[in-house]
Amino acid sequence: MDRAEDLQGLLAGDAISLRLGASTTIANYRVPGYLAALRRQHPDARINLTVGNTSAVIADVASMRVDIGLIEGGCHHPDLTVVPWTVDELVVFVTRGHALAQLSCAVMLADAAWLLREQGSGTREEFERKLLPHLGRLRVDMELGDSESIKRAVAAGLGISCLSRSVVVDLLASGDVVEISGLPVLARTLYRIQHRARSLTRGVTALLKILTLETMEDGAVEVRNNCKFERING
């Protein structure tokens, strides 16, 4: 059906269409650059973006509500293919003047008031996988469903958090927050996911070219062409 609709649209001279699902951090800090590149190549492209946490995007791809998903966490759904496409760095940070900004140890970090994303978030999942074994325990003081809210709350002195460097790069540069050093490297792989039963549409094909070849603007990292290998979960 996908190929038939695509062929019909191509013969009719229709614009490409893309239904994209993206987890929150990717949607806010990476996708705008991708969509700008897509529109430069296809000015009449019809684009629909659905934003949610990693679990929500997986559900949307599995139910075929979107053509392709970009997620921050792992995916083990048996009906989906999972392909790594770039690496994202996470940063643990506090407001300037916080005691942990000067001196930190595992006990101090474990007892700190943590402001974290909700369960089901790829950022939360990776944080717990990488840091919880290092800390031994964790005191979650607040759960917030938006990274912007978290970074502003940390800057206001409400606690400590861990987010993508792309989220907090502005506050790090201004000195409103500081990065806590001496922790394990917090790098995670970002993935694109697609339903096994869906064929590649022209819209998805155009996006994939951008994901693998386009260098993001405004200081974002270059997307590495590491989609030559594919891991199929399930």
Rank of each mutant, 00 (worst) to 15 (best):
R30I: 05
V31A: 09
G33K: 10
L35Y: 05
R39F: 12
Q41D: 11
P43H: 15
P43F: 12
R46I: 02
R46D: 15
I47C: 09
I47W: 10
N48Q: 15
N48M: 14
N48H: 13
L49W: 02
L49A: 06
L49P: 00
T50F: 04
N53R: 07
N53G: 05
S55A: 14
A56R: 11
I58W: 08
A59M: 14
V61I: 00
A62N: 12
S63A: 15
S63Y: 15
M64G: 12
R65C: 05
V66W: 10
L70P: 06
L70H: 00
L70E: 10
I71C: 07
I71Y: 10
G73D: 04
G74L: 10
C75N: 00
H77W: 15
P78C: 11
L80S: 05
T81N: 14
V82R: 05
P84T: 00
L90M: 11
V92N: 06
V92L: 04
V94K: 07
T95F: 13
R96A: 07
H98Q: 09
H98S: 02
H98T: 05
A99S: 13
L100C: 08
L100M: 11
L100W: 05
L100D: 06
L100R: 01
A101I: 08
Q102H: 09
L103A: 12
S104D: 05
S104Q: 10
V107P: 01
V107A: 15
A110G: 11
A110D: 01
A112I: 11
A112M: 11
W114L: 12
W114T: 01
L115Q: 02
L115M: 14
L116H: 06
L116N: 03
R117K: 15
G120H: 00
S121C: 06
E125A: 07
E125H: 12
E126G: 09
E126V: 03
F127N: 06
F127D: 01
L131C: 11
L131Y: 08
L132G: 11
